[in-house]
Amino acid sequence: MIVIMFRVLIIAAIILLVYSIIQYFRNPQRQLENAKGTKEFYLLDEQDNSKKNLHFVYKGCQFEGEKYVGTTEDSFQIVDIHVTVHDPLELQGLTRDDIYFLEKELFLRYPHAKVTWKHPINKLLLNN
C-alpha cells in the first residue's frame, strides 16, 4: 500500500513539474524581458481590458502605454494612448523611423487611438 501511494506521489510531482515548466515558458512578463534582451519587438497587451496598461519592447527599450477609453461615432473605443519609456537611457540609438514603426503597430491594434509620446520621446518628434 505504501509503495502504491509513493508511486502516486511521484506521478503527481512529475505532473506538477511539467505544469510549472509550461507556465514558466508561457509567462508574458518573461517573454517581454526575453524580447528586451534580444532587442526585438514584443507587445504585451490585453485588448479586452482597457484598465491594464500596454507594455512593449523595441530594440531593447521598454515602453509603457496608458490606454484611455472614449467615444467614436458608434461605440466606445480606446481613443488615446500615452506612451512613456521606463529608462530614458535605453532610448539611445532609436530613430524617428523607429517611433513611426511603433506608432504603426499601435494603430494596427487601436485604429481610433491618438498616440501621445511623453518626454523625452516627444523631443525627437518635434525636432526636424
Score class of each variant (00 low, 15 high):
G37F: 01
D97Y: 04
L44T: 00
K67I: 06
L106T: 02
T72N: 14
L16H: 04
N49A: 07
V18I: 15
Y42F: 15
Q77P: 00
T38E: 07
V83M: 07
L54I: 09
L43Y: 03
N122G: 07
L43R: 06
M5Y: 12
N27Q: 13
T116M: 10
T84K: 14
N27T: 12
L124C: 00
I15S: 08
P88T: 09
A12K: 11
Y58N: 13
I81Y: 04
Y110C: 03
M1I: 13
G60Q: 11
L91R: 02
I99A: 01
Q47P: 08
W117F: 09
I11W: 05
I81G: 03
R30F: 10
P28Y: 07
G37W: 01
L44A: 02
R109Y: 08
K59L: 10
D98I: 08
V115W: 02
L108G: 05
V8D: 14
D45W: 00
E66A: 14
K67T: 06
A113K: 01
E64K: 12
T71M: 14
E66F: 02
L89E: 12
V57M: 06
V18R: 05
D97I: 00
R109P: 13
Y68A: 14
A12H: 11
N49F: 03
D45P: 01
Y110W: 10
E40R: 12
P28W: 07
K123E: 08
D48I: 01
D97T: 00
L126K: 13
D45V: 15
E66D: 13
F6D: 06
I4T: 14
E64H: 05
E90I: 00
E103M: 08
M5E: 14
F41L: 13
K52D: 05
T84A: 06
D80E: 14
P120G: 02
H112S: 13
I121N: 06
K114C: 01
L32I: 07
G65T: 07
K59S: 06
F56Y: 06
Q29V: 12
R96F: 01
P120D: 02
F41K: 10
L9V: 13
Y68W: 09
A113H: 02
G93Q: 05
V115K: 09
H55L: 05
L124D: 04
V3G: 11
Y100R: 05
E33V: 10
